[in-house]
Design a protein around this nucleic acid. Structure first.
Lengths: 144, 144
DNA sequence: CTTACACCTGTGCCTAAGGCATGGGTCAAG
DNA sequence: CTTGACCCATGCCTTAGGCACAGGTGTAAG
């Protein structure tokens, strides 16, 4: 199988396959006559795993860790459980953040409904936004 | 005001201020004796606008467009309304995606509760994930 | 055999919004 | 002058691929 063929079979893009190849997640055999990368059944299995993990929003780095463990013959399951737990917590945060953003956007649209458009003054760029930031603490970078 | 001072006053980081400076969103005066960047009141106002817009998840590129319009003396309000509308739609999508991911993660944790850890076989890397991808179509990159 | 042409391949550069490390400059106290 | 604390500008690094480019491959026609 060559890159596009594999990509189609796994319902992903050739660029994605190339990317995973480039960073060593999957290892093809170089065809000796034309230098094209050739992927076998085992690699397809591996790619399937990678894509499934990506579906759960595992980062590529995390997947690399899992595969590394598995390649040494060890169970990757505990690691997988840990990651999924962490990912769920992260998703919960993301969820809340999106909620807040949505509320904020809706409020903005609502508030602006009645306001006219104004040309910028020396003190204001767009009164829609600048009249808006009361009672809402900003957040410095407290990420995870 | 120098970079850190401005950053503290606006409750953001010096790196952020430097970034906006670097890409020309805000323009400081170079202090002639030490080469330090110095920011005035007008710039602080501008930065406030930028940060408020970022709170609404406007991209920096979008903000650049708004400021460019405003700098020419034109109303940026229609553009702002348009962006906020678009952003709201985008957020809605994001919201749904996060919901799906959360459901998927929760289901995974649930399903795995009863399953043991297994060493990888020749055909499987981690049975938790590989047994999981039934009845769930993958998605090729159909983004917006 | 050669030509034509569609499709395919590998490589390298690009992204968003800053974060971080480095090497040096500045300011006040002693 | 020297120490030390803090501050500054600059440049590289990050994700997960996307995209453009230049050239190779394969098949049909001549």
């Amino acid at each position: 199988m060559r890159v596009t063929e594999l990509a189609n079979a796994m319902d992903t893009t050739p660029d994605t396959v190339r990317y995973y190849t480039r960073i060593g997640l999957i290892v093809p055999i170089k065809s000796p006559n034309n230098g094209y990368k050739t992927y076998g059944k085992k690699t397809q299995q591996r790619l399937k795993f990678i894509l499934s993990a990506r579906q759960l929003d595992f980062s590529v780095e995390e997947i690399k860790g899992i595969l590394s463990e598995s390649d040494k013959g060890n169970t990757a399951c505990p690691l997988v459980r840990e990651i999924v737990e962490h990912r769920l917590a992260e998703t919960e945060k993301q969820f809340q953040a999106t909620l807040i953003l949505r509320k904020r956007l809706k409020k903005a649209m609502d508030d602006w409904q009645s306001k006219p458009n104004k040309a910028p003054t020396g003190d204001m760029i767009c009164h829609l936004i600048e009249g808006e930031s009361e009672g809402d603490a900003h957040q410095r970078g407290n990420n995870g």
